[in-house]
Simulated scan of single mutants.
Amino acid sequence: MRKLVVIAVVLAGLWSGYWFIGAKGVESAFNTWIDDRRAEGWVSQAQDVSTRGFPNRFDTIFSGLELADPDTGLAWRAEEFQILALSYQPNHVIAVWPGQQVISSPLQNITFQADNFKGSLVFDPSPDLPLDRSSIVIENLTMQSNAGWTAGLEAGQIATRKSSVAPNRHDIHFEATGLLPASSFVQGFGNGELLPSVFERALLKASVDFTGPWDRHAVETARPQITRIAISDLDAKWGELGLKAVGTVDVDARGIPTGEVAIKAKNWRKMVEIAEASGVLAPELVSTVTGALQFVAGLSGNSETLDVTLRLSGGAVFLGPIPIGAAPIIRIR
């Protein structure tokens, strides 16, 4: 019995030593990372970095955290940010964002406020910490910009997983309810009268290829850029509008997409109204596009539902031979 007690005491002492050494190592690594960014010209500071959670956790809390990348002009400020991990599984962390945080760019400052903003991230056990999979949950999010717009989200979840099929490919699943688009975006559609303010639901399943891995260098140096998007399921409902889509586009170094996307749209005439009101569709093309879409819709047997393939080429979006708008530029800042 005495031997068992001695063994237990020795093991407890060894584990305690491991935890305290590990905790100090975690704190030192984060402080070194902050100092290294500052040496590279970033705004990089934290009022306090502390690790707690003895005996089974390394829970690191950052207070007064501020980061700004001079190359992109992006900055992030949070009063508190937490990275939580089991002491025996440090490559799997829980990230807890604060109730309020601010993201800034050269164009605007956006204040985020949420009841819950939490993520689970699993990294490969490598010094570069490449992301293997993640899951982020957001509840009751509001966004307010000093550029004059507001947006929000009742509930949302995004999950990613590194693909085993191709390097630097991630499978992505996103779903949201009660999505409130930017007020300036909605008001652009006929002063907000063509659409309700809230997007009822949205679902996206896709595979996305990047120019490089999402690891610590993606934060420290440059964000990987998208080279290919394969949409396996997009399903959204916004007021009277229903939209489904599948397709694949390749994205060049300038961020210009090329490819085809098959669209199934319910109440497509309202979409034409919205495109005209927002300026995406030139007034002189409305009659031509409406006629072409009416013909295509009639082929499906339901004049209110449109089954059509959109072609993206040369920086424009085409319906058959008709250009109907500019293609979006796909760049990660």
Score class of each variant (00 low, 15 high):
residue 14 L to T: 14
residue 16 S to V: 10
residue 23 A to P: 14
residue 28 S to A: 11
residue 29 A to F: 09
residue 37 R to W: 04
residue 42 W to R: 12
residue 42 W to I: 13
residue 44 S to M: 01
residue 46 A to Y: 05
residue 53 G to C: 05
residue 55 P to C: 07
residue 58 F to H: 12
residue 59 D to T: 09
residue 66 E to G: 02
residue 70 P to D: 11
residue 72 T to N: 01
residue 81 F to Y: 11
residue 81 F to P: 03
residue 83 I to K: 08
residue 84 L to K: 11
residue 86 L to R: 06
residue 88 Y to K: 06
residue 94 I to P: 08
residue 99 G to Q: 13
residue 102 V to Q: 14
residue 106 P to C: 02
residue 106 P to K: 04
residue 107 L to G: 00
residue 110 I to F: 14
residue 115 D to F: 12
residue 121 L to K: 08
residue 121 L to A: 15
residue 123 F to N: 00
residue 131 L to E: 14
residue 144 Q to N: 12
residue 146 N to Q: 11
residue 150 T to G: 13
residue 159 A to K: 00
residue 160 T to E: 04
residue 169 R to G: 03
residue 171 D to K: 08
residue 180 L to M: 06
residue 183 S to C: 02
residue 185 F to L: 11
residue 186 V to N: 00
residue 192 G to K: 13
residue 199 F to H: 10
residue 203 L to H: 00
residue 205 K to S: 13
residue 223 R to K: 05
residue 224 P to T: 10
residue 233 D to G: 03
residue 235 D to P: 02
residue 256 I to K: 03
residue 259 G to N: 06
residue 265 A to Y: 07
residue 277 A to C: 10
residue 279 G to V: 00
residue 285 L to C: 00
residue 291 G to P: 01
residue 294 Q to D: 08
residue 303 S to A: 05
residue 303 S to G: 02
residue 316 A to R: 06
residue 323 P to Y: 10
residue 333 R to W: 06
